[in-house]
Amino acid sequence: MDFQATIDADGRIEPRDAMPDGYRKTLIRQIAQHAHSEIIGMQPEGNWISRAPSLRRKAILMAKVQDEAGHGLYLYAAAETLGVDRADLLDMLHSGRQKYSSIFNYPTLTWADIGAIGWLVDGAAIVNQVPLCRCSYGPYARAMVRVCKEESFHQRQGFEILYTLCNGTPGQKAMAQDALNRWWWPSLMMFGPPDTASTHSEQSMAWGIKRHSNDELRQRFVDMTVPQADVLGLRVPDDGLVHQDGRYRFTEPDYTELYDVVKGNGPCNQQRLSHRVKAHEDGAWVREAAAAYAAKKEARAA
């Protein structure tokens, strides 16, 4: 079957199938940026491993950050099926030619931020990614099935952190509210620009890469999250929030902030990228040594 017929029949495109150049390029960009987001996302949460306030929470957080590294690995592997190299994609990240999710350019200031990230950021990621489990490109869709399972654990663990704080001391509850106040708007922006301004959407929809518009997904997230905030006893920091016919009307985030952060002007852009570049550069001699050792071993065996 040719490419368009497969797409029209809602079938899967596999690595060896013919595909239009634009389709390949769009997927490489999207999967790479998704992979970059997973590994940059390790930083704001990794920031709290050493200070997690109980050993149980420390173990859960370490496992979570490790899962994100695993997500990065599956996604880079999925991108490599399209004929690119992980090393080249990492160079694109390090040189700023490819982006990662802007949400990770905000700082984690208190322990409650670890709860808020799990609940809101992993929660938003799930809303974005569940439809990708049906993406037309097979390797990406399959990677997403695995990733989504783990993200839903993360979301529950984040909620549970906040639930414990909200039922704890007044100081803990205040910490939880403060975290929601700071993470709410950036989380809404995780769905991208409003439909009226989104540039890539139409073609991606036709190719079966994207299944729902940014605004539809954002609405789904709000509808899912606001009742959970009620369970926590936290106030969503939006005076315009109204419940109407089973949906929530909410105030749109300030998208000029989103565009600014994407351009590099967020509180942690510099920090996140330079941390990543430093880890990579500090590790260069290790990777070179591993390659040299493997070559010597091979030469000895020959």
């Binding site: 590994i39 390790m42 590294a69 690995l73 500090d282 260069a284 990777r287």
Partner: peptide, 12 residues
């Protein structure tokens, strides 16, 4: 070392 390792496999 997590998020600072020489390669992603090593973070894991």
């Amino acid at each position: 070392w997590i998020a600072a390792a020489p390669q992603l496999e090593e973070d894991v």
